[in-house]
Amino acid sequence: MLLGACSSLQPQVDAPAAVVSDSTKWEPDIVAFEQQDAVVRRMPGGIVFVGSSSIRLWESLHEDFPGVPIINRGFGGSRVRDSTWYADRIVIPYQPRAVVFYAGDNDLFEGRTPQQVRDDFEAFVDKVRASLPEVRIAFIAIKPSPSRVTLLPQVREANALVREYAKGVGGVDYLDVFLPMLDAQGHPRPELFVEDQLHLNRSGYAIWAGVVRPWLAGL
């Protein structure tokens, strides 16, 4: 009886829950994109910008790249794997000639490792290339945000891993916006960010445009 009583005091361990992708939480955003598609003409051969809030908030895209048929499919707070999850709905249907991708800082903030970020981006490339084998893909380097300065070592490592991966894959390129966003001491430049010190202001986007523009011109 004593043993039974003692065993009844042992902490209960819950059985592991079934793994379900949390990317589905972005479904309303994706449905909204698809509703836009119903009234906006698709643009085969265009350029899809996809990724997290830094893409979604790039309101000057069309003026930064005049004459370029751009489709903005950024959805705020998303991670690399979220764009992969929805690629067959917000990238592939447009039959773009190129994709400009940005995500990764949210991943690292949530605890993903630099290696996982690299692997997740590779999965994105593989999924898009399975349907669009000739599409060019550019990875915009993970930015150095002042509000997440403690993550800079992981950001540097993730960027280096993606850069090395891109070197070995034809038609995939790494666009370095990281270094231009640092000051002479190697610190993030706060003047490139809005008040939250996480998202870019017009000056920050001007740096991004200056890096992306030559890549687009070379397509």
Rank of each mutant, 00 (worst) to 15 (best):
L3M: 12
G4D: 13
A5E: 15
C6R: 14
S8M: 12
V13Q: 13
D22K: 11
D22F: 11
K25M: 15
E27A: 13
P28Q: 10
V31C: 03
R41V: 11
M43F: 00
I47H: 03
V50C: 06
S53T: 08
S54F: 03
F65G: 10
P66F: 00
G67P: 09
I71E: 08
N72D: 05
N72L: 05
F75R: 13
G76L: 06
G76Y: 00
G76N: 02
G77R: 11
S78T: 07
R79D: 04
R79S: 07
R81G: 12
S83Q: 09
A87F: 02
P93K: 03
Y94F: 13
R97L: 11
R97K: 15
A98Q: 06
G104N: 08
G104C: 05
F109T: 15
E110A: 12
Q115K: 12
D119Y: 01
D119F: 01
D126K: 14
A130W: 00
E134D: 15
T150H: 13
T150G: 15
R156I: 15
E157Y: 03
E157P: 06
N159T: 04
L161M: 14
K167Y: 03
G168L: 12
G171F: 02
V172G: 07
Q185S: 14
P190C: 06
H199P: 10
S203Y: 09
G210L: 07
V212W: 00
P214D: 04
W215F: 08
